[in-house]
Structures are given as C-alpha cells and as structure tokens.
C-alpha cells in the first residue's frame, strides 16, 4: 500500500485520494476556443516525474499538488494546491 504524506492530515493511504488531472494553468474565461480545448483535452502524459492535482476526498478534502513519477509511482513532493489553480 502506498502512503501519501498529506500536508494537512499526515501519511494516509493512497486510496483516500482521487486523481484529478495534470497540472496546467487554467485559461482565462475569455481565452480562445483553441486554448480551452487544449486545456480540457490535451495532456503531456509523460513517463517520469509528473505534476498532478489530487483530491484528498476521504480526508481533509483539499486539492493537493503532487510531483509523482508515473513509472515508479514515487511521490517527490506534495503540497496544498493553493494558488496554483489561479487563472494565469
């Protein structure tokens, strides 16, 4: 069983968390359709370190930002996603 070290709750079972999506700047509301389409559908989908949003839905219910290796599943950083979801 893999543990995620939630910054609010401490080490918790990975099954308490739900993967949300790859981290990407949320487009402005009036951004072009192509920009929104790329944000909604397209993914870097790398094999290796990956910046991801996860939801600790069976814990503190906070959105967290992780850097997780998609090949080894190793989590190298986990922090609150505050600020990172802001419009850029």
């Amino acid at each position: 069983m893999q543990l995620f070290n939630c910054p609010f709750c401490g080490p918790r079972d990975q099954s308490e968390f739900t993967y949300v999506r790859e981290v990407a700047p949320v487009p402005a509301l009036d951004a072009s359709q192509a920009t929104w389409q790329a944000y909604v559908y397209d993914r870097d989908n790398p094999r290796g370190p990956h910046r991801e949003w996860w939801h600790h839905n069976h814990g503190c219910r906070q959105i967290l930002e992780l850097v997780r290796d998609t090949l080894t599943h190793e989590v190298s950083s986990i922090q609150a996603a505050r600020g990172t979801r802001a419009t850029k």
Partner: peptide, 13 residues
C-alpha cells in the same frame, strides 16, 4: 488503478 502510470504493475486495493 485510476491514476496515470507507465509502471506495468498495480496496487492491491
């Protein structure tokens, strides 16, 4: 397993 992975292995849950 509901998260992106290139590891050809899964977890027990």
């Amino acid at each position: 397993d509901f998260y992106p992975s290139y590891g050809q292995k899964g977890n027990l849950p």
